[in-house]
Amino acid sequence: MEPEGSTDADEAANEPAVSVDAGFDAIADARRRYALYYLRERESATLDELATVVTGWLAARNDPDGAGSRADRDRTRIDLHHVQLPTLASAGVISYDDQTGGVELESLPAFLDGVLDQSLADERAAAERERRESTDERG
């Protein structure tokens, strides 16, 4: 902890709550990115809800027919609780109450919002490309 002083406080006001490094690190992992996509729609969620969404969504993203089992969801839930949500929380992107499982989205800096919009657009384009390729193969 740095000592508090008027100079530090001024600097803190100029610095965004989420540093660019921490912001990019936060979305480097697909599980964290998909949790954020979901949270951006709703502002808050629970650990259980996120475990369900991240399991089902990533299974469907990797394979359009993809199935997620109870065991998959249990693994995702443990991973979110111990690794992914604490990482997002320490980046300042969410707040996570590990007692109640409550997750709230903090206000995202503009650069992070923009990157998430762009990455969603890229995911859509990649999925579209894959569909075209598999249609070509069949045809």
Binding site: G56, A67, R70, A125
Partner: peptide, 23 residues
């Protein structure tokens, strides 16, 4: 959900418990 191109997925819950998901 926001559109990520996957189309989404379906979750079945039984007695409040997650039973499974499928694209």
């Amino acid at each position: 959900l926001p559109d990520d191109g996957s189309g989404g997925f379906v979750v079945v819950t039984e007695g409040g418990e997650f039973a499974g998901s499928v694209g």
